[in-house]
Design a protein around this nucleic acid. Sequence first.
DNA 1: CATGAATGAGCATTCATTCAT
DNA 2: CATGAATGAATGCTCATTCAT
Lengths: 207, 207, 207, 207
Amino acid sequence: MARTIGSEGARTEAAIREAAARLFARHGFEGVSMRRLAEEVGVQAGALYRYFPTKQALLADMMADHLRRLLDAWEAEPKPRADPPAELAAFARFHVRYHVDRRDEVFVNYMELRSLAPDHFSQIAALRDAYEAPLRDILARGARAGQFHVPDLPVTAMALVAMLTGVTRWARPGGRLDADALADLHAALALGAVRAPHPEPSCFTPA
Amino acid sequence: MARTIGSEGARTEAAIREAAARLFARHGFEGVSMRRLAEEVGVQAGALYRYFPTKQALLADMMADHLRRLLDAWEAEPKPRADPPAELAAFARFHVRYHVDRRDEVFVNYMELRSLAPDHFSQIAALRDAYEAPLRDILARGARAGQFHVPDLPVTAMALVAMLTGVTRWARPGGRLDADALADLHAALALGAVRAPHPEPSCFTPA
Amino acid sequence: MARTIGSEGARTEAAIREAAARLFARHGFEGVSMRRLAEEVGVQAGALYRYFPTKQALLADMMADHLRRLLDAWEAEPKPRADPPAELAAFARFHVRYHVDRRDEVFVNYMELRSLAPDHFSQIAALRDAYEAPLRDILARGARAGQFHVPDLPVTAMALVAMLTGVTRWARPGGRLDADALADLHAALALGAVRAPHPEPSCFTPA
Amino acid sequence: MARTIGSEGARTEAAIREAAARLFARHGFEGVSMRRLAEEVGVQAGALYRYFPTKQALLADMMADHLRRLLDAWEAEPKPRADPPAELAAFARFHVRYHVDRRDEVFVNYMELRSLAPDHFSQIAALRDAYEAPLRDILARGARAGQFHVPDLPVTAMALVAMLTGVTRWARPGGRLDADALADLHAALALGAVRAPHPEPSCFTPA
DNA sequence: CATGAATGAGCATTCATTCAT
DNA sequence: CATGAATGAATGCTCATTCAT
């Protein structure tokens, strides 16, 4: 019988990643043993080492993988251009929707930075910074245009990301609100947080 | 003859709490061994068990202690009354200042909930809920008064807490901004996030 | 490719059982550490846990195993029928011979009942009761036939077992008397202990 | 206020001995910690070391003490003289009654020999031997007089002691039979075990 | 591609014991 | 006479990892 493309091995590796995301999210990186992970996958512990040289490498790999897919997804997202408020809303909506759908991976990414050895850490930190760069750019352009009030760009960007990511701490699939509703609510909060406080001039000035 | 009040024992217990907060925050609860903790305190591992019956009990004790002191501090805080926007700003400023000054304890409290056994967990969850209750109350009153736009109260409260707490992830003592500056910046963001969007009527109505 | 049947694993497990019987008998269950046991077997302590999930389970397993083999051996023993004195002598001889040859296992079985958790305990107690049942049966039939004087059946059965088992406390292979001699001596004592006291009628009656 | 004769200290020491007998009997010497013992007595663990230099010394002390009191009690016991069967019955009755009333101490004495260091061990072994000497003497005289059938003196003595002591393994105060009933039953068994099998000569010889 | 057996270090916890007070 | 604090070694057990098969 013909083998599936990518063969057994590829399927096993995918199963390891999935199981690791689930277990690391629930019990923490240090709280999951290779034996437990192997059991979830349905192999012996030794077999995991065919796919990842160490437990730490598995974690770093998962985290980098997640961030790269996040960046790709943002690239692929249809986005408004040259309209910072619309862009910010789009970013917030995208961020919440993407994160709510991938709670486990996100949780691991945000919680287990401290479990990384220094060289893995800087690789991951660079990817995260790359993902947050467009947000800083949107805020900067909106501020220059007088649409946003951003007294401190880096702090504001980090505060918004913290708020938008916080949703993964409590949102559950099948909860009261679906991903779209959560995305809209958070987009409104993010937009409000930085909106320039006095659009009153609009009453009097032609501008 | 009576022992000196506050003798060795009390000092050792305090040292354990301090060292535990520091180490748990940096390496995670599961990432710190009792041996490592004892070394930091300057005793042998066995001595820790004179003060806390298990490692888990030490964690739960620290978390409950932190939350009780947080609740007490908020009680003691001079607060504006009957002015939701001012109250929200006060809450945000208090929260950021308190949290930035106690980064380790906060971090442990927000990260290690999953390390708690169920009964410890519910005790801690109740304390956290008690702390967030005044925020929900402020938002509710502000919304009723038309000062805030709060389409979903619980989600908004959690989003604001996530934003205000996020600062502990990156703020360092001696960083570019001091606690007061960070408090002001976050208070403005929080207020903006829920501020009712159209004060425009002021242009047209006499009100 | 299939592993050799009875490979390393099976040999290691057998070695653990043997070493455990020897060490538990000499130093008591609580007096033997898993490290010490592993050393005797020639492996690291952790390796023991591939074969027995806990130290307690190892003990219970050994005890149940011993009792099952004892029951099987008694089943397989050629026995006189319908002649209680001969049956009692056969039981006594069997018991002493079997026990003298397996001093360590017997000693552990009789001494370490208290080290068992309740569920393990009742399993072992049931097996012991099953082994002593035939003895009670022999005594009962002999008493009914007037061949034995048994004023209290359970007490007598326990007293006999205590006497017959006591030999394991001091008998050593290569001692003054071999297993058969010990068996005969104890059989005579047991028989005497319950023999109906007055065969005197033989003097006067023709019977 | 006048101190009780023997003062606090003597009472504490007695309490330690009592608690130790109870706990060692139930959980084994190695199964009882000095802390647990101290708790039972109502003092801190350190206080035990005022009375016994080590845990091992406490055990040896208890065991020697028990055997000395046992020897003294046998000395003080009113005994038949020059009538081996009556003497054996008296010994058996005494042994069972004394042992049933002091189950904990007896149990510890018989079980924990192996927990003794060599020098303590030989001291205890000598005392036990001294206690069993009269039994061997009775058997020897009875055999010489043709009243007993004793093909092997040391084995018979040990077998009888094993039988008579076995009662402590299951007898409970308040059980179906009281100490006297148990003593009588065991005396009859012991006597029967060694009684010369054929008193028939009495039929024919004037003797 | 995976197993089954094992290692050696480490874990949380408990121990008998000491000693200043 | 006793406590409260601590030690240092040991306990049962789990871990990430290795490797012959």
